[in-house]
């Protein structure tokens, strides 16, 4: 059959935003190879989600059901995918680099003795071999590597979140929805999920924020982060920080963006006093627009930013914040 298999994650009874991204990437490969995109999804979602997968570009939807899947047990997902692969023998498996996807993708590859490429920002088909070429940033974004797979069975791709845009919803698309009856070996489920605890954090979480205001060592201390927060609040955005800031204890490590820390891809990433070391940029290069305020005209950040100001942040930031507030009001 050699189809493209996509693991569609769910959140709060609906599709996770990465489902559409994976289908878009899958579509790109499938259209070139002339095969189908099949989405795997758990049944603990609103029924409309199955059709949505088709409207987003899937040709087939496989619905799987098990109490452990609903809890988010990675062992259960790996076992189910293993059985599905035995049945349909896919050419490619796509997962997202989320908590679930990066672990499931890596585990299923080894379970099937396949190759896996983690954190891919692009995929294409090699015309000669008809196998996938995966593009991944390496060395903290200091280099970009392209890999090919040496075997087909199957090629596992773990896609960086937001590296593909979802296709527009097309309600005229048709496809099949099939509930799969699969039995798995319960001994293969070695993990027990005791509880999931949501921690109340103030405001939106970094990974979901449309706008992030991030501060670096150039701010000189913890106090200025209040001003960053003020700016972030205007956008309903979030505050982030560089490693130096977190190492110095100015901000908690939960705010750290970079190679060590969180990888984010907001629409707008505003940096204040961040030099733009590759270690930091590895965590934010997927952002749609990078804006920089820094007093060093030679700072690396200006290589990646689209707009910026060279100046003293203490003078630039208040007037910038004020102007933003006025503009967004009108």
């Amino acid at each position: 059959m050699s189809d493209i298999l996509v693991l569609a994650e769910t959140e709060n009874n609906y599709l996770h935003s990465t489902a559409g991204e994976l289908i878009a990437a899958g579509r790109k490969l499938a259209d070139e190879l002339g095969n189908q995109v099949c989405a795997v999804i758990t049944d603990d979602v609103d029924e409309s989600s199955f059709k949505n997968l088709i409207h987003l570009g899937a040709d087939k939807v496989y619905v799987i059901s098990h109490a452990e899947l609903s809890k988010g047990n990675i062992d259960a997902f790996v076992s189910y995918l293993e059985q599905i692969c035995i049945q349909i023998n896919p050419n490619v498996i796509l997962t997202s680099r989320t908590y679930m996807g990066r672990n499931i993708g890596a585990r299923i590859a080894y379970r099937l003795e396949s190759g896996v490429a983690q954190d891919c920002i692009d995929v294409e088909i090699d015309k000669n071999s008809s196998r996938v070429i995966a593009t991944r940033p390496v060395y903290g974004g200091n280099a970009v590597a392209r890999f090919t797979f040496n075997q087909d069975d199957p090629q596992v791709i773990i896609l960086r979140v937001k590296s593909f845009d979802s296709n527009e919803i097309d309600t005229t698309r048709n496809g099949s929805i099939e509930k799969l009856n699969i039995s798995i070996d319960n001994d293969a489920i070695k993990l027990k999920l005791i509880e999931t605890v949501k921690e109340e954090s103030e405001g939106i979480r970094l990974e979901d924020a449309p706008v992030i205001v991030a501060g670096g060592r150039g701010l000189g201390g913890p106090e200025p982060f209040k001003q960053l927060e003020e700016l972030a609040n205007i956008f309903d955005g979030a505050v982030g920080a560089s490693r130096a800031v977190c190492d110095a204890g100015w901000m908690d490590h939960a705010f750290q963006i970079g190679l060590t820390g969180k990888q984010v891809a907001p629409d707008v990433y505003i940096t204040v006093g961040i030099s733009g070391a590759s270690q930091h940029m590895a965590g934010c290069l997927g952002s749609r627009n990078i804006i920089a305020i820094n007093n060093d005209a030679d700072a690396n950040i200006f290589k990646d930013a689209s707009y910026g100001v060279v100046g003293d942040w203490e003078k630039v930031l208040p007037s910038f914040t004020e102007a933003v507030r006025d503009l967004l009001k009108s």
């Binding site: 396949s114 190759g115 896996v116 490429a117 070429i133 940033p137 390496v138 974004g141 200091n142 280099a143 970009v144 590597a145 392209r146 890999f147 090919t148 797979f149 040496n150 075997q151 990078i290 920089a292 305020i293 005209a297 200006f302 290589k303 990646d304 930013a305 689209s306 707009y307 910026g308 100001v309 060279v310 100046g311 003293d312 003078k315 630039v316 930031l317 208040p318 007037s319 910038f320 914040t321 102007a323």
Partner: peptide, 28 residues
């Protein structure tokens, strides 16, 4: 299981436009 076919320095396709006002506050 995989072969590295290409390793390159990233191409920065962003050309930064620097805003310059009368003073820093104006630039902001």
């Amino acid at each position: 299981k995989m072969t590295l076919v290409d390793l390159a320095l990233p191409v920065s396709n962003s050309k930064c436009e620097i805003l310059e006002g009368e003073d820093d506050a104006d630039s902001g």
